[in-house]
Design a protein around this nucleic acid. Structure first.
Lengths: 342, 342
DNA sequence: GATATTTTTGCAACCGGTTGCAAAAATATC
DNA sequence: GATATTTTTGCAACCGGTTGCAAAAATATC
């Protein structure tokens, strides 16, 4: 049905090797030969079969793109940037949804069967065992949004989550909040742990500020909303008031929190302040207008793709962590900074 | 490095064919042979190379998942459902981002080189030439969210967009709006055209209702917002007032519209009514609370996956359109229905 | 237990490519 | 124009599998 290399060779009256060389970068073919082959190939609508080729070259140009969060809108941006970035380098993303997968071996199996050249794990909530399992099978792996010290054998691209936590704390302190809280994502996610650690570390320098923390079950709207509702009910039963400001582990979480607060008649930022993290597109939507810590995801993802490309040429590259600085983006969910000169 | 079929054959002391048969469903192998081979295979950590296998079986189990909209949050749900659905059938999605692609031949080339078993085009805005180009290369194609009559050679799964338009019109009529408008997505998208057609058809039955229409440049928040701002400026310059209610071509468009209206001090639904289409997760977020027409995307996508699976077994299957009914989901962006008994 | 039938197994060719090596052709050198 | 050197080409083996066919082994039938 579809033309093969042999068909082209016959049509052009040359050897199969000649055809193969015409379609291989840097192979030795005379101009005359190339012309002849290209003519025959275009007449037959031939294009090389990458999968057959991969058998000898050992390169499929397939990259496993692994994620487990399809409920956080930022991941649409993540997929957009990854697919474009990979396509630009002539690599193809094999999308793997690990939302309900618990067995690293199963995912390894899956990606091994398709001989992917590398794996990008785009998640801060997937247990490190997954990245390690890929690594153990000699696959190049980049853990985007990962923790930079937990799996020293795996390349990591992202932000310094502890520093982001500190930045959040400094921001709330500068605005004079007397009681602050951390409302994180899943407790076992490395990103949650590190953000909390940095946040608390910095808050602890101000003994007069009250600190508390709690966790949402997932990085999702529903989870954020559920957690703040739970805290609100506590106010009623235990008398323990809500904090003056919440640093939420993520934007979508923040939006869930915003939604619940507004509904219960509390005004943001007058009654409660909210600070997010990510700065996803939606956060600057005028009806959301979330003050948040910007995570430079474009840079993070482009760098992840570059790093992956580099690993394909140099599989035993020494592992590195690439961290990008964050910055606070002021919008409408925190009260003004204090006008002090301290 | 990684164990091959021959390694297993040697270790088990049997022929390569025997090993191959052990890993092929329905092949003839005795129990004793199977045991022996499985032992050797698990000792070596062997798993078959799908790509090598595909050379003879002519099945890669790779499905091209093509989209061009990474700015509409509903597509995150779409990708979630597709990846899960395909994975459950042991198929693998090769994600293709056609956001900035204009040449169908290029995408065909790309997918042909990877010998995908089929292509799912998940878009109502990609020109029909793309689906047709895949079809012309004998690839099974399912156009999810496509127009069911425009490319009769391509299978389509989705809704009857004209009927959805009529449903929207009936809903606005029932609520007694005296002037209504259609604020669609891109003018050349089949979904926009059909929704407008149905909507207008039904509104025209009510000569006392004023009708107008306009288009946003994309199915995105920014485009919806920009279009309603343009219309608002017209109010100032031409005196032409805004409509009492807008049927927007999509939820994310509606949210952009909501955002701009609220900002300019108009109250929804008291001053202006908004009706969306899709019912994505975000539309039921309490701080959005959009009245919208529910498109059953779970059913649509599961059906698309099933249809694709069926086409793999029967490539020349007669093309069909699978349409799912929509329904209005009442939330907070339209005023109450009139209490009439007419 | 001999023969007929069925099941299991291995051989060899094949899927669609690439590549090292040697021979052939083209070019350089005198 | 003969010889040395370089470039181009084709052969044959290989990448990691599958499969039709015939032979071998196992089972059924009398």
């Amino acid at each position: 049905m579809v033309a093969t290399l042999k068909d082209v060779a016959n049509k052009a009256g040359v050897s199969p090797s000649a055809v193969s060389r015409t379609f291989t970068d840097g192979a030795s073919v005379s101009d005359k030969m190339r012309k002849k082959v290209e003519k025959a190939a275009s007449d037959l609508g031939y294009s090389p079969n990458f999968l057959a080729r991969s058998l000898t070259t050992r390169r499929t140009k397939l990259i496993g793109l692994v994620s487990n969060n399809f409920h956080n809108p930022i991941f649409l941006e993540v997929f957009d940037l990854f697919t474009r970035g990979l396509q630009d380098l002539d690599l193809r993303p094999l999308l793997v949804n690990l939302s309900s997968e618990t067995d690293p071996e199963h995912s390894v199996q899956m990606l091994k069967q398709y001989s992917v050249d590398g794996v990008i794990v785009a998640s801060s909530t997937l247990p490190p065992e997954f990245s390690m399992a890929f690594r153990n099978k000699q696959m190049p792996v980049v853990n985007t949004f990962g923790r930079y010290s937990s799996s020293p054998e795996v390349h990591v691209v992202g932000i310094d989550n502890a520093e982001a936590g500190r930045m959040a704390a400094r921001e709330l302190v500068a605005r004079g909040y007397a009681s602050v809280a951390f409302l994180g994502g899943p407790e076992n996610a490395t990103s949650t742990q590190d953000r909390l650690k940095g946040f608390k570390e910095e808050i602890d320098k101000h003994p007069r500020i009250t600190f508390s923390s709690s966790y949402a079950a997932a990085y999702s709207f529903d989870a954020g909303r559920a957690e703040i509702l739970r805290l609100s009910r506590q106010v009623a039963s235990t008398g323990q008031p809500l904090a003056e400001a919440y640093f939420c582990g993520d934007d979508v979480l923040s939006i869930g929190v915003l939604s619940a607060l507004q509904e219960s008649g509390l005004h943001v930022p007058n009654d409660v302040g909210i600070l997010g993290l990510n700065d996803m597109e939606m956060s600057r939507w005028e009806n959301i207008n979330l003050t948040t810590i910007h995570q430079p995801i474009k840079q993070i993802i482009n760098s992840s793709v570059e790093l992956m490309a580099a690993m394909l040429d140099e599989p035993d590259r020494y592992p590195e962590a690439r961290l990008f600085p964050c910055r606070v983006v002021e919008r409408g969910t925190l009260r003004s900074r204090l006008d002090t000169t301290e």
